Computed example of a mutant assay.
Amino acid sequence: MYSPGVIVIGGGASGLMAAGRAAEMGARVLLLEKMPRLGLKLGLTGKGRGNLTNQGDIQTFIQSYAPDGKFLRNCFARFFNQDLMDFFETRGVPLTVERGGRVFPVSDRALDLVSALLRYGQQGRVRIAKEHPVEKIEIGNGAVTGVWSRGRFFEAQAVVLATGGASYPQTGSTGDGYRLARSLGHTIMPVRPYLIPLVTGEDGVTGLQGLSLKNVRATLYLKGVKDQSEFGEMIFTHFGLSGPIILTLSGRVVDCLPKGKVEVSLNMKPALTAEQIDLRLQREFQENPLKGAASVLKNLLPSRMVPVFLSRADVSADKKSNQITSGERNRIRNLLSDFRFTIQGHRPLDEAIITA
């Protein structure tokens, strides 16, 4: 009977990497995966394109995990984004860097990343048993002796727990690792979602669902005080806000929600000062004196956003430009740099990209 030295529980990205590396170092490795396929969540990243990593520096990564990111420094010092990129490129997956430092396979196929990890394990003769959920990790004399799966005991001298979190349960991440770790005496901190869409309280968002915005700045406010800001892309949904910059803010939002009122402000023209925005509005209105406000604002905003925007500004959509008062223009100007939404909550845990 095959007797591995190392058993890896979980066939996602971390499990495949751990299994391949252990085999590369000379261990006999058995990987147990409860799902019928490996690397399911990795295959979904970047909407199937494979958003592998980001080119940001170590400090940027740590700040993104605030306030708990400091523990990652030692890990990143040993293996960081360039090491990860080199790993895949030397295994036949050329990569490209896109806006915001995001790294993708040139092929735009996340499954190419999965295939590279599978080849890595095959080179080390890692044995894989799919549809093998682990019920228990066995301990004897203070050391791991093996695991139980499907009523069978698998002996091992070491076990790597790589089961993922509790998000996207359809990919197999159902919190098994927390249960197994707890059974070994570990204390499990409350699980919270991270990288998760946000739910807003404004009815007007519903009319914007599906609308994507680029080159905007989203700023988080807690009880009216500026907290964190991100620049890039976002999207309106039927329940609120999502997209890259919203997901980046979401972990902090989850932390802030129990502390008081949470708002997200969108700056539609982050490259312009308030004075520059005002001058632009004056020019647009002066050049189009007989056009309605809605028609003129389509030069500054996506057309689908204009009705919601003018409703917030309390300006009639068909009011002629030459009739707009300075007070109304000021309200429009302020909204262009501070289009604010109250955050009522976030989507369910199983919709989070990761858990923290």
Rank of each mutant, 00 (worst) to 15 (best):
M1H: 12
M17I: 05
E24Q: 08
E24K: 09
A27S: 13
R28A: 09
L32Q: 13
E33V: 11
R37C: 04
R37I: 02
L40S: 09
K41I: 07
K41T: 04
G43M: 06
K47D: 10
D57Y: 12
F61G: 00
Y65N: 01
D68T: 00
F76E: 00
D83E: 06
D83V: 10
D86W: 05
D86Q: 05
T90Q: 15
E98R: 02
G100V: 03
P105G: 13
R109Y: 11
L111R: 09
S115C: 09
L118S: 03
G121E: 12
Q122T: 10
Q122P: 05
V126F: 04
I128T: 05
K130S: 06
E131Q: 13
K136Y: 12
I139K: 14
N141M: 09
F153I: 01
F153P: 01
L161C: 09
L161I: 12
S167V: 04
Y168M: 08
Y168Q: 14
S173L: 03
Y178S: 13
R179C: 06
I188F: 14
R192D: 07
I196R: 00
T206G: 10
Q209P: 01
L211Y: 06
K214A: 04
N215M: 05
R217A: 00
R217P: 01
A218I: 08
T219M: 11
Y221M: 03
Y221L: 12
L222I: 11
E230L: 02
F231W: 14
E233S: 01
I235V: 13
T237F: 05
T237W: 01
G243Q: 11
V254F: 14
V254P: 08
V262S: 04
V262Q: 13
V264L: 13
N267E: 15
P270W: 11
D278S: 15
Q286P: 06
N288A: 06
N288Y: 14
K298L: 11
L301T: 05
S303D: 15
S303P: 13
R304P: 08
M305C: 14
V308A: 05
L310Q: 03
L310N: 03
R312L: 03
A313H: 05
A313V: 03
S321T: 05
T325M: 02
E328P: 04
E328M: 09
R329L: 14
N330Q: 14
L336R: 04
S337W: 10
R340M: 00
G345C: 08
R347I: 00
L349C: 15
E351T: 02
